[in-house]
């Protein structure tokens, strides 16, 4: 297996799917000539031409809606948002049109579309460029949302998303774009949506995370083992909707303690739903209250000093874990 970056893994997924299905196109700001704002689509204009790799003006509402209209007609567009923060000016197109057309038409029309781009804080770009809207999206029936945390997941899950007949929102992370790992070169390497990954088996506590918080959690688990002799299980949700409830409950029933970790804001965040599910379906297995570590509940701050305090690091995770062990 080749060792490539998360960015290259996305590029492979997009390229393979464009070659596989003539209905697949990539459009967004700076995706073609500029090679992608984060170079995810590097080389693709040269390989597939301007009919497949399409630069758009800065008009998220129009190009998102255009892609939804084209998807209703049978195309499979992949829309890149330079940042997921920019989806808010296209909210109607995603949350009304992409999400609801199938339902409102009584199932007559499918919308096989992918919206993708980075959705993360931690890069000192301030409140307007640091949103993590996976919870908004998960709150909208009709949409699916995934948060791949590794290069292999980025490839396997994006490919599955493109082949999916429903709208899928893919939350990437600018900080992970340079992360390197082994990625299968197989054209049919597909990771199903809705399948969590137990990255580290343990018996004392279940740390459940998604996106970059998965890596924070793994780091914390190592320290918990080395310094505190605690054997933590770390689960990467990978996909928020669909959600692998089964894997979550199995782990809780084994460890009896739960810590939820995310970079999403806390109120009505992803962790809020998961803790509801756990208390509802595994209450008798809990030996301690469910704990949660999330981003601090303020608009994302610019200053490094502030933002470092805002996004949970492994010390926050360790400290929170120790309160229930």
């Amino acid at each position: 297996m080749a060792i490539i970056t998360y960015r290259e893994a996305l590029n492979q997924a997009l390229s393979e799917e464009i070659e596989r299905d003539e209905n697949v196109i990539l459009l967004g700001e700076e995706v073609a000539q500029f090679k992608g704002s984060y170079k995810v689509s590097e080389g693709m204009l040269e390989r597939y031409g301007p009919k497949k790799i399409i630069d758009t003006p800065i008009s998220e509402a129009a190009f998102s809606g255009l892609a939804v209209g084209a998807a209703m007609m049978g195309m499979r567009p992949v829309v890149e948002f330079m940042f997921w923060s920019f989806c808010y000016v296209a909210f109607d197109q995603i949350f009304n049109n992409a999400a609801s057309v199938r339902y409102m038409s009584g199932g007559l029309i499918n919308v096989p579309i992918v919206f993708r781009g980075p959705a993360n804080g931690g890069t000192n770009v301030g409140a307007t460029h640091s949103h993590t809207p996976e919870n908004f999206i998960a709150n909208t029936p009709g949409l699916k949302v995934i948060c791949p945390s590794t290069p292999a997941d980025a490839k396997g899950m994006l490919k599955s998303a493109i082949r999916d007949n429903d709208p899928v929102c893919v939350m990437e992370n600018t900080i992970l774009y340079n992360m390197k790992d082994e990625v299968p070169e197989d054209n049919e390497f597909l990771i199903p949506l809705g399948k969590a990954n137990v990255l580290r088996e343990g018996t004392d506590i279940s740390i459940i995370a998604h996106g970059k918080a998965v890596h924070t959690s793994l780091e914390a688990a190592s320290v918990l083992e080395e310094k505190h002799n605690i054997n933590a299980e770390v689960i990467d949700l990978r996909s928020i909707r669909p959600l692998d409830v089964e894997t979550i409950l199995q782990s809780v029933k084994k460890t009896n303690r739960v810590l939820l970790v995310e970079e999403n804001k806390p109120f009505c965040g992803v962790g809020a739903q998961i803790s509801y599910l756990i208390q509802d379906q595994a209450f008798d297995f809990l030996d301690a209250p469910i704990k949660r570590v999330s981003a601090v509940d303020a608009p994302q701050a610019y200053s490094k000093a502030l933002e470092n305090a805002q996004i949970p690091d492994h010390n926050c995770v360790i400290a929170s874990a120790l309160t229930i062990l």
Partner: peptide
């Protein structure tokens, strides 16, 4: 019904996990 193609076509579904809550 009619929310996701996938839940309307369980035999052809590729995803796993829980879709509705």
């Amino acid at each position: 019904d009619d929310i996701y193609w996938e839940t309307d076509n369980p035999g052809k579904s590729k995803s796993e996990g829980t879709m509705f809550f």
